[in-house]
Design a protein around this nucleic acid. Structure first.
Lengths: 107, 107
DNA sequence: CTTATTCATAACTCTTTGGCTATCAATTAA
DNA sequence: TTAATTGATAGCCAAAGAGTTATGAATAAG
């Protein structure tokens, strides 16, 4: 069973990669050059990180001329939140925040 | 910036470790021996995984005689869900901005 | 007291991975 | 056409990490 949350956890475990994802969440659509200027690593490093994020279904890319724009995939974090909800449901410590978030992400 | 969600993401990135955490969520309090019987790795391997989970604040331990019982830490996944909510809030806010813009353009 | 059990730590191996530089294909500008 | 820019890929290397066996400390049992 190759669950959807496994590559997501893997992808978000690295701080550099998570920072790139956070920036995409915060500022929206970005070119590789823009992300490279801000991330503390080389351009090939950024490209590799973006490939991992894309593979995990967290981001999508759009080609425009010679530049590639990356943006957050819609409902990217849903498998993660669903998993957390399942775990929380097990130990019955119902988190109101979680239920609220699940409700908002279901739309 | 050593945020609380960083060690959590790291800890949950490994499938063996995540399986241990899932079992603790599902079945509650477990001894190391019980977890070892079920995980596909050696007892020292399980102990090491449990140390990582504990360090991340995901589980807590309780000593009873010569055995150690592990269980899920209360609100263990809250930093994770909070982070996800924050990320979701970012693109949600963008959507609001867009709706706002669209609304203003209607007039 | 001696032996068995339970778990943690130490020490090691091997794989994965995150970083780099070099380079290439594709596109745009001169 | 030629030169410059953008980003992806290849290849390499060092560090991290997940696994192992061996062993030690603490407790329980005989």
């Amino acid at each position: 069973m190759a669950k959807a949350h496994d590559p997501i956890f893997r992808a978000l475990a690295d701080p550099t990669r998570r920072a790139i994802f956070e920036r995409l969440c915060h500022d929206g659509d970005q070119t590789v050059a823009a992300l490279t200027a801000y991330a503390g690593v080389s351009q090939p490093g950024v490209s590799k990180h973006l490939a991992v994020l894309k593979q995990a279904g967290l981001v999508c890319d759009r080609h425009e001329g010679r530049q590639t724009h990356y943006s957050v995939q819609r409902d990217a974090l849903k498998p993660l939140v669903d998993w957390a909800g399942q775990m929380a449901g097990f130990w019955e410590g119902k988190l109101d925040d979680l239920e609220d978030l699940l409700g908002r992400m279901d739309q």
